[in-house]
Design a protein around this nucleic acid. Sequence first.
DNA 1: TCTTATATTGCAACAAAGTTGCATGATGTG
DNA 2: CACATCATGCAACTTTGTTGCAATATAAGA
Lengths: 151, 151
Amino acid sequence: MNKEFISLLEKHQLRKTAPRLSVLSILKAKNTATSQPDLEAMIGKDVDRVTLYRILKTFEEKGIIHKILDLNGTANYAICHSSCNEHDHKDNHVHFNCTVCLHIYCLDNIQIPDIKIPSGFVSHTTNFVSYGICEKCSKKAEQYVNSNDEE
Amino acid sequence: MNKEFISLLEKHQLRKTAPRLSVLSILKAKNTATSQPDLEAMIGKDVDRVTLYRILKTFEEKGIIHKILDLNGTANYAICHSSCNEHDHKDNHVHFNCTVCLHIYCLDNIQIPDIKIPSGFVSHTTNFVSYGICEKCSKKAEQYVNSNDEE
DNA sequence: TCTTATATTGCAACAAAGTTGCATGATGTG
DNA sequence: CACATCATGCAACTTTGTTGCAATATAAGA
């Protein structure tokens, strides 16, 4: 399991260090993006806050992870599924940001549609975020409603 | 010109105060969204920082302005063109974020296309941001290239 | 295996962004 | 004009992110 991360770091010519492997394993373990504060809490005090910021920055630049901002502007990070690299680092799937649990889902199968932009403007990347209620939170809400049927 | 802002505040049952009118006139004067730091600088020290935050929060809740996050997660604000209100506060046009000057343009004429989201998920709002180089910055770059033709 | 250049980390200190509680002051309605 | 309420200002604080520099770990070569 660790081998996967080690080869990922090697591929990008980054040294294999404990903090970096921790970050990768935390991000990989979840199916949603992880927020900066959560990451900081999960990684604990073994790794310095500054180190974490720097790791996230290099990972993003190398195309290992991508950053998505939630509705509050908080940074969230997820491992890139598609084969990103330094030069071609696109993250052209739609994201879903649940307004209840605040989780961000990468909808890998849903491509961002093309749009026409005004002449004179040149677009390099696009970002599509859908805000609403995720499956888990919908189900929880249903259960809650059902349990109060007698009212 | 002030009448416009005063009636806007009345419409939303907000008291007409000097700080609120300042915010409105600053936002209205520009064709791009204004960042929180810029707003703070422009409004000067006559208005307290905390007051500014609170004004922006109420304006957003009332549907007077909308918030757009730039690529760094910095909050930017623009006056809503469409007739938004507390209950129907949608901002369904595309935004363009220039990576050079960092300005955010509201592309009022360009609607956000619909997408299919996975079953179980319920979408309330969508957000579409295009990142690239705006017209002004493109022209500046051209001029720069031309002036260095002799090289 | 030892040495060494260099990438990476940790620490301290700081800057910026945003929040909370409370007292003061302005607004608008009767 | 009085008064309830909304809005602001101030102080203090939390969170998020950055910078410089010294200490340390990594990887590659002798």
